[in-house]
């Protein structure tokens, strides 16, 4: 039965992927702050930006093209691409970073010894290191998400595709209805530029969009085989 096949594909072997539509993204930062809140990311103080050590699991890169009056600013939401051929994985001496069977590149915080080899090897600069013990003012600690570990000094971290949400949604073993499970960034994104889902489900929106005629993958030539597909921005020429 088709439904059975689909259900078993989802249950036994989900492959979590994301599509980022650059023609929708406005660079609004809603995803960035939603991620900060969901994933107990330390508050990025002014000094973190001076040192270029701000921790943002998803960040919006802005590229300039030209100068006034013929100028463009283009936005690129960048997060861990959950590479299927991840250069960050083989270099970890203690197997703190590995690939799981749902297509996720996973970071085991309490195994990480902080060599930062993985960070050096990630071409997307998606890995972020805790150079300092993160601190929250006492009252603000009330907001911390109990589903997500607070990382300590000396530990590498990065986007997990909100694994805590995936775990909660799939714990029962029932198939997850497409569109109901979303990481915090995709859930917030006002323009719906971020679409998340199980690409082993052929009917999932993410499966359809990743083959859209506008699809491409960032720095694909490096052979990282990312699980994040981008859709090209559209320029209308005169």
């Amino acid at each position: 039965m088709a439904t059975q096949t689909k259900a078993s594909a989802q249950r036994d072997n989900p492959k979590w992927e994301m599509v980022v539509d650059l023609d929708r993204c406005t660079g609004c930062q809603a995803c960035v702050i939603a991620c900060q809140a969901e994933n107990n990311i330390p508050i990025n103080e002014e000094s973190a930006f001076h040192e270029h050590r701000a921790i943002q699991w998803i960040r919006i890169e802005r590229y300039w093209e030209g100068e006034f009056p013929d100028v463009k600013a283009r936005f690129l939401p960048l997060l861990c691409q959950q590479c299927d051929n991840a250069p960050c994985e083989p270099v970890c001496p203690v197997f703190a970073t590995y690939h799981n069977n749902e297509g996720l590149n996973v970071q085991v915080y309490n195994r990480c010894v902080g060599t930062r080899y993985c960070g050096n090897n990630c071409p997307y600069h998606a890995r972020l290191f805790n150079y300092w013990e993160p601190v929250w003012p006492e009252d603000l600690r009330n907001q911390l998400n109990p589903d997500v570990t607070v990382r300590t000094r000396g530990v590498m971290e990065k986007c997990t595709f909100c694994i805590q949400r995936i775990r909660r949604a799939t714990r029962g073993g029932e198939p997850v209805e497409d569109g109901t499970l979303q990481p915090a960034c995709a859930q917030a994104c006002p323009t719906s530029a971020l679409v998340f889902g199980n690409s082993n489900d052929p009917d999932a929106k993410v499966s359809r969009l990743k083959t859209d005629e506008r699809h491409f993958r960032v720095m694909e030539h490096l052979g990282t085989d990312p699980s994040v597909t981008y859709l090209k921005q559209v320029d209308v020429d005169g």
Partner: peptide, 27 residues
Amino acid sequence: RLPKLEGDELAVQLPGEEVIEVQHVRR
């Protein structure tokens, strides 16, 4: 020094090495 996310060099797309790909359509 302004605290900002971008680096100290102007972030531009390198010709032929664009990270952001664009689809051109005619009006």
